[in-house]
Amino acid sequence: MSQYRSLSLSGKEWVFKREEPFVSADDREQIKLLGEVAGANIWRDYVSDSFLYPDLFSGDVWVKKNIVDTCEWEQAWESDEESVPDMMLSHLENWGDDTRVYFCCHADLVLETTWAVFKRAWKAFLFLESDAVLVGKKKKQAIQFCEDGRLTLLMRPS
């Protein structure tokens, strides 16, 4: 069983092949869709062992309780500016460009890449499922892109 699935067979590859926001071929090669088991394990270990989808989260899930701050992502996403919102960069300032990150839409849709690639392609990722949670391997900081345009800055529990 492979750790990864084909992004093209998932029906999700189109978000990274759009003209706008543009994602380079080199970056697309570094965006991997985790296989069902690997994705479910990341979801369980980093996001929730009780809920398979973020819209089902109850108020006692760490993603709802461990909010450091919030800001808006939608205005930056709609602008011509390519960079991620400053508040997000500040919150994740200890993430190196080679930090392995997981964009967790739900237990069956988890994408893996590096922080450098995510920063360049963040607008494309947001064409995927709403309320996705971005976590870094072995990192305490996390963020959730909420459907209402808010970005919640989070701290994962120890």
Rank of each mutant, 00 (worst) to 15 (best):
V23G: 01
F125P: 02
N94W: 02
F103D: 05
G39H: 02
R100K: 12
A76G: 08
F51K: 15
N66I: 08
D131Q: 09
W62M: 04
L128W: 09
S24V: 07
F57T: 05
W62C: 07
T114Y: 02
H91D: 11
Y53H: 13
I42N: 07
A40K: 15
Q75L: 13
H91C: 13
F118G: 07
Y102H: 14
E74A: 10
L34F: 07
T99A: 04
K65C: 10
A40G: 11
L111T: 03
D131T: 09
E82T: 10
E112A: 04
E82L: 09
F125K: 02
L111S: 04
E72T: 10
P85V: 05
E78R: 10
D60I: 12
L56T: 09
D98S: 14
S50R: 13
Q75I: 11
D69K: 11
V37T: 10
D26R: 15
A124S: 15
L89I: 11
K119W: 01
A116E: 15
L34C: 06
F127E: 08
V47T: 06
F118I: 08
A116L: 12
G35H: 08
D98K: 11
S90P: 00
P85W: 05
N94H: 11
E29V: 07
I67F: 07
I31S: 06
F16Y: 10
R120K: 15
F125A: 06
Q75R: 13
Q30P: 04
A40C: 09
C105F: 04
I67A: 05
L33E: 02
G35W: 00
P21Y: 00
W95G: 00
L109N: 13
L56C: 11
R120M: 04
F125C: 05
L126H: 08
Y102G: 04
V68K: 13
F127V: 04
R100D: 06
V68S: 11
D60H: 13
F16C: 02
F51C: 13
L126K: 05
D55W: 14
V37Q: 14
I67G: 05
L92W: 00
F22V: 06
L128I: 10
C104H: 02
L126S: 07
E81L: 04
A40S: 14
D27W: 03
A40Y: 07
G96M: 05
S130F: 10
E20Y: 09
A121V: 01
R18A: 14
N66S: 12
E93D: 14
D45E: 14
D26G: 08
G39A: 07
V117E: 03
N41S: 13
V110C: 07
D69Y: 08
A124V: 03
F16W: 05
W62E: 06
Y102R: 06
I42R: 10
G96T: 12
L89H: 13
E112S: 06
V37D: 13
P21T: 03
L34P: 03
E112H: 06
G59H: 13
S79F: 00
D108S: 10
D108L: 12
D80Y: 02
Y53W: 11
V84R: 01
D27M: 04
E129N: 11
D80T: 02
E129I: 03
D69W: 06
V63S: 00
P21C: 06
F51L: 12
T114G: 02
